[in-house]
Design a protein around this nucleic acid. Structure first.
Lengths: 225, 225
DNA sequence: AATGTTATGTTTGGATCCAAAGTAGAGACC
DNA sequence: GGTCTCTACTTTGGATCCAAACATAACATT
C-alpha cells in the first residue's frame, strides 16, 4: 500500500469521524478526489475499504454514502468489543497463563500503578494511559491462539466510537477521570488475577464489563455520560 | 457495484475457498486479471475487499497472498460467531420478545419440525434446512437492535468455514446427519423458549453452544469430526 | 393536464498508460 | 571465492480515457 493510497483511507476515515461529511451524505468519487488532490483511482480503492469497515454504505446503485450511527449502534459496538475481548480472555485462561505472558501483562499493570500512584491525573498522563491500555488489551487478544479474534475486534474498532482507546477523557475534570482510570486499573488487575488462576468464566465477564467503562461509568461519577 | 466487479470478488472468494490458490500463495494482479478475463482495475478493487474480509493478506510490500488458516483459526471463528450470535440473542431477550418476532421465529421452527417429522433425511432436505437455518439466525441477529452485530457476524462469515450455513452435510451418512439436525432443531426451539421467557443469559449460552454443532458434534455420533 | 418517451447530462466502472518502487541477477572489486 | 553494487526487469500504484448505466428534464401525445 503506497503512501497516497494509505493516506486517502486514513484521511477519509478522519474526515468522516470528525463529521466533515454529514451522516447519510452521498460521496461522489470526483468530488472527494478533488478535495484530497488525488485522482479517482485511490479514492475508488478507499471507498471499498471504508465500505468493508462499515463507515460507508452503498447508496443504491449510485455510489456510497456516509453511514449514520445511532446511540444503539454505539452501545452495540461496545458490547461487541466486550464479548470478543471476553472470548479472548477466556481462551487465555483456559489454555493456561504462561509465565512469559504473565510477565508481559504485569509490565502494563505496573505502568498503570505508577501512573496512578501520585494520586491525581495530569494532562499528559492521558496519552500514557491510552498507550498502556492498548498494549494490555492487545497482549491478551494476541494470545488467544488465533488472529481471528483480533481481526474481528480490529474491524469493529474501525467504528470510531468502539475502540478501547477511544475513552474520551475530559481534561476539564481530571479528578473525576482519575477515579475512572483507577477503576479501569483495578479491572485490569482483576483480569490478570483471574487469568492466573485459570478462571475462564470470571476473566470473560470481567472483560465484558470492562468494555463499558468508557460508556456508562461517567454516570457513577456525576458526569451524566 | 457492477456485474463484473461483484463477480470478480465472488469468483475470487470461491476460488480461494476451493483451494485453487494454495495457502500462502502470492496473487499477482496481472496473473489473476488474465485468468478471470478482466483488466487489472476490478482485480485491484477486489483485492482490497478480500483483504478486509480476511481472505487475503498483504505480502510485504509486494501485493497480496492467500491467507492460511489453521485448525485453531477455524475453532476461533466458530467461537466468534457463537459469542456474537449469543450477544444478539441476549439482547433480544432483554428487550422482550415481541409477538411479531415470536411469530416469525415460529415459522422457521415449524418448517424445521416438518422437515424432520418423517423421521429420516433425504438429499434434497439439506438445502431446505440450510435455508430455514439461515432465516432463523438472521431473524434473531436482525432483531438485536442495531446492525452492528450483524455486520460483525457477516464479516466473520466471510471465512468460508465460519458461516452457520456451512454445516457440511455428509450425504453418505444421512442417518447420522439426521440426528445432528434433530439436535440443532431442539436447540433452536430452546432458544425461542428462553427468548419468550426473557431468559437472556440462557438464550446467550444456548446460542454459543449451538455454534459448535457443525464442529465437534460429529464426534458424538461417531463421525470423528 | 397528465403521462409516457426520448434525449441529454452526470456519475460510476473498466481498460490502458505512465511512473515509481522493489527484486533479482550479473558483474566487478576486495 | 565471497560480497557489494549497479542495472535491468517485474510489479504495483496513480492518472486518464472511454463506455455504459442511471437520473433528470423536457417535449410530445393522448
Amino acid at each position: 500500500m503506497s503512501n497516497t493510497d494509505k493516506s486517502v483511507v486514513s484521511r477519509l476515515r478522519k474526515l468522516i469521524g470528525e463529521g466533515a461529511y454529514g451522516p447519510g451524505e452521498r460521496l461522489g468519487e470526483v468530488a472527494v478526489s478533488e478535495q484530497l488532490g488525488v485522482s479517482r483511482t485511490p479514492v475508488r480503492l478507499a471507498f471499498r475499504t471504508l465500505e468493508q469497515e462499515g463507515l460507508l454504505q452503498r447508496a443504491g446503485k449510485r455510489g456510497f454514502m456516509v453511514r449514520e450511527f445511532t446511540e444503539a449502534d454505539v452501545l452495540c459496538a461496545v458490547e461487541v468489543r466486550g464479548v470478543l475481548e471476553g472470548l479472548a480472555a477466556r481462551r487465555v485462561a483456559e489454555q493456561g497463563l504462561s509465565a512469559a505472558l504473565e510477565a508481559e501483562l504485569l509490565v502494563w499493570i505496573q505502568k498503570g500503578r505508577e501512573l496512578l500512584a501520585k494520586g491525581y491525573l495530569e494532562e499528559r498522563d492521558v496519552d500514557v494511559w491510552s498507550e498502556l491500555n492498548r498494549h494490555f488489551h492487545e497482549t491478551i487478544v494476541g494470545s488467544a491462539g488465533s488472529p481471528v479474534i483480533g481481526d474481528a475486534i480490529a474491524r469493529n474498532n474501525h467504528l470510531p466510537f468502539a475502540a478501547a482507546d477511544s475513552i474520551v477523557i475530559d481534561s476539564e475534570a481530571l479528578d473525576r477521570e482519575y477515579r475512572k482510570l483507577q477503576l479501569a486499573q483495578t479491572q485490569h488487575e482483576l483480569v490478570v488475577q483471574a487469568l492466573r488462576h485459570g478462571e475462564g468464566a470470571r476473566a470473560e465477564m470481567l472483560m465484558r464489563e470492562h468494555a463499558f467503562i468508557g460508556l456508562r461509568y461517567g454516570e457513577l461519577f456525576g458526569l451524566g455520560g
